[in-house]
Amino acid sequence: MAVDSVGSAVVVGVDGSESALAAVRLAAAEAARWHRPLRVVHAFIWPTLHSPVTPGTEGPADGGLRGQARQLVTAAVDQAQAVAPGLEVTGEIVDGAPAAVLLDASTDAALVVLGDRGMGGFTALVVGSVAVTVAAYARCPVLVARGAVDPHGPIVVGVDGSEVSRRAVEFAVRTAARRGATVLALHAYRHPVSTGPGDMQPLVYDESQLHEEEQRALAESVTGLTARYPEVSIRRESVHARAPKALTEASRTAQLLVVGGQGRGELTGLLLGSVSRSMLHHSHCPVAVVRA
């Protein structure tokens, strides 16, 4: 499902953490740009633990854990409306574990937004398990709030020639059109890539010829998008480097980093590729992971 699906909302997960509030602000701005309603969701996990219900857990309407959950949802809704006055915002509490609740919401969402770490995450972890799980299994693009946003920076998208990568490039260009931003399509390569089972990489290859071939692959990844989005300036850059290192460096001055969920040459059984997982941990700006 893509961001332009008719009638679908932007969904943001909240848990009361600072990371979640950053996600709310990011989600509100994005929903306003796409003219979408915003759905604020809090996963209330207590009922799933099969623990006895006591006055301290459920409590009266204005007390107990569920009352606290209502308060944090209300605060998140208020913050979203402050960021984007006039935006249609709803808030709800859904019983269940955070990852499961957000994955269920992704089936008919335009975009799922969440923070990189929740209240239950260890501070030593760079990115939380919920963010990784949702990015790996969501049925729509996932936007993870992390790092800082350079409003004047480009939208950087990683390109590797795969089908998922092409969807990521289109997502980046459409997003840039809404934001009035430029796009940097960045392709990092190390050496010739095998094109089929049993192919062997040559022991010796012409570096200049390889660069030309990689440049052509990069150009093909944006074919047709310039005509469809003439208002968006798309700059292409091909570098001889490891993809995670090149994308991490580019994210320092970007307003958004977009990556495909799984890249060329990665095992088809992997739901979240090594590059996209690395960016969730190391990007200096918000990261969008596009799988579907």
Rank of each mutant, 00 (worst) to 15 (best):
G121K: 11
L87C: 03
S5N: 14
A100V: 08
C140F: 11
P197G: 00
S5E: 15
L21S: 15
V132H: 04
A227G: 04
H240E: 13
L114W: 03
S165E: 09
M279L: 11
P98Y: 00
A177Q: 08
P154H: 03
L143R: 05
V113T: 10
H35N: 15
M200A: 13
S278H: 09
D62C: 03
V169C: 06
A2F: 15
G120K: 03
G263P: 07
S251F: 02
G263L: 06
H187A: 12
H281R: 11
V113P: 10
V149G: 00
A27N: 04
A168R: 02
E213M: 01
V3K: 08
F44E: 07
F122G: 15
A69S: 01
A29S: 14
P202C: 11
R70W: 00
Q81S: 10
L26S: 08
L270N: 04
A27S: 04
H152I: 05
M119F: 00
E92P: 01
A135R: 02
S233L: 14
G265A: 04
A250I: 06
G63C: 12
V113L: 11
A124K: 14
D78W: 03
A188Q: 11
S278Y: 10
M200E: 14
P151K: 05
H284F: 08
V77T: 02
W46S: 09
A185I: 04
V83R: 06
Q215D: 09
S278L: 08
R235E: 12
Y229M: 12
E163Q: 11
A246I: 14
L38C: 09
L26M: 08
E18A: 10
F44Q: 06
L114Y: 02
V142W: 02
A61G: 12
V53C: 12
A138Y: 06
A99M: 04
T182L: 09
A168T: 01
E170W: 07
G121R: 15
W46F: 13
H240Y: 09
A82S: 13
M200I: 06
R66P: 05
V173H: 02
S129M: 00
G16M: 01
G198L: 03
G161F: 06
